[in-house]
């Protein structure tokens, strides 16, 4: 199977009061068409920045992103808009990802209208998409604050599906939702991936979710990918100390306490090979 995405040596440094912060130091990975890839790691390790670079929302300092073998970082204007037909993103906070002054229907139709689709056709497609994400057509006229987080996230998924993209990046798309709704959204993503043949990148803190849903997983720490491989293998038999600690930090049903000390503030304790 051919690669849909190849990310090579991405670098991004942010400056706050002229003090540099290397959010992404060296990120390289590749994923196959129709694959689901999970990116895990603690907060601030560069997962979201990587996603934003892939979707062209952040300009990197170096590296390259190849989508279907075509370099995307240099795209501008019309070709960039064409890229947004191929890559889409679902955000962490569903209510904030819709303009508070626009209805969900308008939000879903915006991309179609921007690509020149007639209003009537765009409306038909929008209802089709709402049906696809198991939402009633009445939600089209509702504002983001009038629906629940789960319903809003479904609408966000419908918006992401609108241009028939090949790759969808879900940036912690379930972390702001309660557990039952999380499960529904995960089921929906699974179903859509199967039906549409989508490639998915799941950025998550939830290792169980990545293990269950993803074929491939990459573990990030301090702006670099420290371990990657088959998702089940990475989480069951981690090779790197950091991955091991990340897995051990998760609360378990069987033992109410934590098995290993937490990793505080990005500091990997002694013995961690990546520190």
């Amino acid at each position: 199977m051919e690669n849909i995405l190849e990310v090579k040596e991405l670098k991004k440094t942010f400056y706050k009061n002229k003090i540099p912060f290397e959010a992404v130091k060296s990120v390289s990975f590749q994923m196959k068409k129709g694959q689901c890839m999970g990116i895990v790691g603690e907060s601030g390790c560069g997962k979201s920045t990587t996603a934003k670079i892939i979707t062209h929302l952040t300009v990197p300092d170096g590296g390259s992103v190849l989508l279907n073998g075509r370099e995307t970082l240099s795209l501008k204007g019309k070709s960039l808009r064409k890229l947004y037909g191929e890559v889409q993103m679902v955000f962490q906070t569903p209510q904030d990802s819709f303009d508070p002054r626009c209805t969900l229907g308008d939000g879903i139709m915006e991309g179609m209208r921007n690509r020149g689709m007639k209003k009537r056709k765009a409306k038909e497609r929008m209802y089709e998409l709402l049906d696809m994400v198991e939402l009633d057509g009445g939600f089209a006229s509702r504002y983001p604050h009038e629906v629940s987080g789960g319903q809003c996230q479904r609408a966000a998924i419908a918006r992401a599906l609108a241009p028939n993209p090949q790759l969808i990046i879900c940036d912690e798309a379930t972390s702001a939702l309660d557990v039952t709704v999380q499960a529904q959204i995960v089921e929906l993503l699974k179903k859509l991936q199967k039906e549409q043949g989508l490639s998915l990148i799941l950025i998550s803190h939830d290792l169980a979710l990545v293990q269950n849903l993803c074929d491939h997983a990459a573990v990030m720490y301090k702006g670099s990918v420290v371990e990657q491989g088959a998702a089940d293998e990475v989480i069951r038999n981690p090779k790197e100390t950091y991955t091991q600690m990340l897995v051990d930090s998760v609360f378990g049903w069987e033992s109410p306490g934590r098995r290993q000390p937490f990793i505080y503030g990005g500091v990997c304790p002694a013995g961690c090979g990546t520190a």
Partner: peptide
């Protein structure tokens, strides 16, 4: 920096449209 501005960019809205609409 709100996600809905990023979402509008991903919908292919140009700078002026984004300013005017969002």
């Amino acid at each position: 920096n709100m996600p809905y501005i990023a979402a509008a960019k991903l919908s292919g809205s140009g700078t002026w449209k984004m300013i005017g609409k969002h």
